[in-house]
Design a protein around this nucleic acid. Structure first.
Length: 569
RNA sequence: GCGCCUAUAGCUCAAUUGGAUAGAGCAACGGACUUCUAAUCCGUAGGUUGCAGGUUCGAUUCCUGCUAGGCGUGCCA
């Protein structure tokens, strides 16, 4: 299958060179030959616009070039190709023989759960860091989107042969968590009856801290009042981080996302790496003192402003431990590191990349992209505010709770993951709760899952009638003669390249779209053509092979997305 | 002010990275269950790809300038 592409590639390349050698084409350099799947079967199975691309260099009409190339191909010596023709402005359309279709089915049957994977990325270690929410509150919906996207991205990368891991960076040091400690302290004292206390500026207002403080009071009473304020706040900070982190982990596990590594900012700070990093910058003369602070010459890297790294109060800004953390990632030997950031971190991308560049790491070592915001929309189309600081937000857990009420726990996770994954990372996502709940039956994820369930149902039905699928070698695949069967197999054959391109582009949303298209061919097929037909067992056997293949690809695709493939619905 | 992202059917989004007639779902309208699950299918309708230029065989895609929206631009993280 994919091998047939390389075969075709070589055939065309040789033909072009032969034409040049014969003096029919004057081309100095033969560019890479692009292929694309065709939109309609009339255009063959794959097509290339190479003749169009060569037109200028060869000073010849594209159709003429195509003719010269095609004339140099001896079809008889290539049984995999049934026909090559020239169409439109000069497209070369390649039609595969039926044997290619059968090979697709044989490959799926032979490879099963690993169909779609490849080893292109073998030997390379990748790390994807995502979610990395502050341990100051429950995960919100944007974190849910990041979790779904990051998790799937790692699945995709591993599917094409990389060794990729999931990492979560816990910001358990710095100003934010100090505010957390102070906020819990206020809630604690309020729970013990103190009045006239306010959550400090920049603190956390959410009810979850009131609940947490209440559990402390219930378990341990007022014992902490004996401590000094600083001591108490730092105690609450530490227990608060642990408590919230545990909640976040639980929410992620419920969502089917399990991180391989949890990194701690505090651990980075304690390791001395921030100092080492600053020392490296100092040696390279990237630092200077001004206005009581220490600055990094970001302008040397094309930015319009320099950037404070040590504040006048002596504390590091966020960038110091973060840069040290990335240096740590580099030392751990990752070939490439991918950071998925929240929508309010755009300013980070260029700056952190510059810091990393200043450390001497290759430009393309660090990839950063933004997971855009999610707007939760209610029935009236109003947007809910999800700011953590104002304590008014919609958590990932709450989202799944609400969905689960309508469709059950497993489907709730499936639906949420699918919705988060179906859009490109950099486009905003309107998550319409009402639609997801009240119109659950029209949800695209059910459409795909239903297709899978239907496949399973056919086998179950066959089982009752004593019809079992035969090994593919014993089946006459020639009995697959319907155009829609041809279309289905073509679609199945696309799967590996969809996975590959999706992983390489870091665009997980292509998988949901692909699966939806596949289901969109299978459902009509199911309606129009009966699979189990005791009057024609040979045809039945062939169709069972096809259904098995569809089932396998649907399941493999859904698994990449972390979505279940139910056997019945 | 500067920077990043976005603008495609009434709505939400695709378009294999510059290719052939721009595709799906929802919403609308008309049909199909005594046959492997109707969470399905068949059909109809829906477009000056925000606007104006440019690059070339060819532009939703690349460049320039506008317009509109989102975000960023802290000695917060």
């Amino acid at each position: 299958m994919d091998t047939i592409k390389t075969v075709v590639y070589d055939i065309l390349k040789n033909a072009i060179h032969a034409a040049i050698a014969a003096g029919e084409l004057s081309i100095a350099e033969v560019p890479d030959i692009p292929f694309s799947p065709t939109k309609t079967p009339e255009h063959g199975d794959i097509a290339t616009p190479i003749a169009l691309g060569l037109a200028k260099q060869a000073r010849m009409a594209p159709r003429n070039i195509a003719e010269k190339i095609v004339a140099r191909i001896d079809l008889d010596s290539h049984p995999a190709i049934s026909k090559i023709d020239i169409a439109g402005a000069g497209f070369i359309n390649i039609h595969f023989s039926d044997e290619w279709l059968y090979d697709t089915l044989r490959t799926i049957a032979a490879t099963q759960s690993v169909y779609g994977t490849c080893d292109k990325g073998a030997g390379k270690h990748l790390q994807v860091e995502f979610v990395s929410a502050n341990p100051t509150g429950p995960l919100n919906i944007v974190s849910g989107r990041a979790a779904a996207v990051g998790d799937t991205l790692v699945n995709l990368l591993n599917a094409i042969g990389y060794k990729a891991i999931r990492e979560y960076y816990v910001n358990d040091a710095g100003g934010q968590v100090e505010k957390l400690g102070e906020s819990i302290d206020v809630r604690y004292r309020q729970a013990l009856g103190e009045e006239d206390l306010e959550i400090p500026e920049g603190g956390y207002q959410g009810e979850y801290l009131q609940e947490f403080a209440q559990t402390i009071v219930e378990a341990e009473g007022d014992t902490y009042l004996q401590l000094g304020t600083d001591e108490r706040v730092s105690h609450f900070r530490d227990t608060g981080i642990a408590h919230i982190l545990a909640q976040q982990k639980t929410a992620l596990e419920r969502f089917g996302v399990n991180f391989d590594v949890w990194s701690s900012e505090k651990a980075i700070r304690d390791s001395g790496k921030p100092e080492e990093t600053l020392e490296l910058f100092r040696e390279k003369e990237y630092l200077y003192e001004a206005e009581g602070a220490t600055w990094f010459r970001m302008t040397d890297f094309g930015d319009d402003k320099d950037c404070v790294v040590i504040r006048s109060n002596g504390e590091y800004t966020y960038f110091v431990p973060d840069t040290a953390y990335h240096r740590d990632k580099f030392d751990r030997g990752f070939t490439t590191v991918i950071d998925l950031l929240g929508p309010d971190h755009q300013g980070h991308i260029t700056r952190l990349k510059n810091f990393v560049k200043a450390l001497g790491m290759p430009d393309d070592w660090l990839e950063m992209s933004i997971i855009q915001q999610v707007n939760l929309v209610n029935a009236e189309g109003e947007r809910l505010d999800m700011s953590k600081r104002r304590g008014q937000f919609f958590t990932l857990d709450l989202l799944i709770d609400e969905l689960a009420e309508a469709v059950g726990e497993q489907f709730a996770v499936d639906v949420a993951r699918y919705f988060f994954l179906m859009r490109a990372n950099n486009s905003h996502l309107d998550f319409n709760m009402e639609l997801a709940i009240t119109h659950a039956s029209e949800n695209p994820v059910f459409y795909i899952q239903y297709a899978h369930a239907r496949c399973c149902s056919i086998f179950e039905q066959g089982n009752e009638q004593g019809i079992a699928p035969k090994p593919i070698d014993e089946v006459s695949l020639k009995r697959l003669t319907e155009p829609i069967e041809y279309e289905l197999i073509r679609k199945l054959a696309d799967f590996p390249s969809v996975v590959l391109l999706s992983a390489e582009a870091r665009e997980a949303h292509r998988i949901p779209h692909y699966l939806h298209e596949l289901a969109g061919i299978f459902h009509p097929y199911y309606n129009q053509h009966r699979v189990l037909d005791t009057s024609d067992m040979e045809k039945t056997d062939a169709r069972l092979i096809l259904v098995q293949s569809v089932q396998t690809v649907l399941k493999n695709g859904l698994t990449l997305l972390g979505i279940s493939a139910p056997t019945s619905m």
